[in-house]
Design a protein around this nucleic acid. Structure first.
Lengths: 112, 112
DNA sequence: CATATTGCTACAATTTCAGTAGCGCAAGAG
DNA sequence: CTCTTGCGCTACTGAAATTGTAGCAATATG
């Protein structure tokens, strides 16, 4: 299953055809709403609609595409009871994303 | 200077109009090639063309736009001698991005 | 002057995204 | 059963972003 996910993912990787894993990740995270989705799922699972609200009412079209990609990458999973949550790997990635908040809060150009 | 950069940046922030700094950052990093540019500048400054090559010959149109945004955000600067490099803040951000490599290398769906 | 390199721009073709509407399904209420 | 509600998800059109290619002006170098 990881293998098929891998195969599919490789086909989707844009901008980087080197096959280096980090490039695939940078490319995935460089698509609109991807980082935001991981961010919004940091605390608890969310239903697709709650997630949409959390993401400033992003269009369901893209959101669903991002969720598919993230599921394919094994970072997000669909709960049987409904809703999405981060997998173990997704949470691992989230731990790397969380520190961005401190950085943003301290970096003057990002302050409101 | 930080103030004008802030003003301009706020206007450019898409998808998030909450004014929360981290959202502005997630949005900036969620544009194509942004993360990649930071990644490619991690070790040494690069000329615009060297950067373009490093980024799988991405179109100069987008690269230039991303570089403008990154300069505006004070994360990248233009060297007098030519070329681009990370600012102090850019390097700080880079430190948060570097661990993604380890994650990608260990996460099966990203392995080639 | 000839040549090469740099940062950067123009422009058409293509891809992606936004915004809105609504489907089919399942669960609960009456 | 019928009605309602909320779920995941899709369709569709117009707008925006990205790609790919070509080339400019400025600067340096021979």
């Amino acid at each position: 299953m990881a293998k098929s996910a891998n195969t599919r993912l490789a086909k989707r990787v844009r901008g980087s055809r080197t096959g280096r894993p980090v490039m695939a990740l940078l490319d995935l995270l460089g698509r609109r709403w991807t980082l935001r989705v991981v961010w919004e799922l940091r605390d608890a699972p969310l239903t697709s609609r709650a997630l949409r609200e959390a993401c400033d009412d992003a269009s369901p079209t893209v959101l669903n595409e991002r969720l598919s990609e993230l599921r394919e990458a094994g970072l997000v999973e669909n709960l049987d009871a409904g809703g999405y949550r981060l997998t173990a790997g997704g949470r691992e990635l989230m731990e790397l994303v969380l520190p961005l908040q401190k950085f943003a809060d301290r970096w003057p150009p990002f302050k409101p």
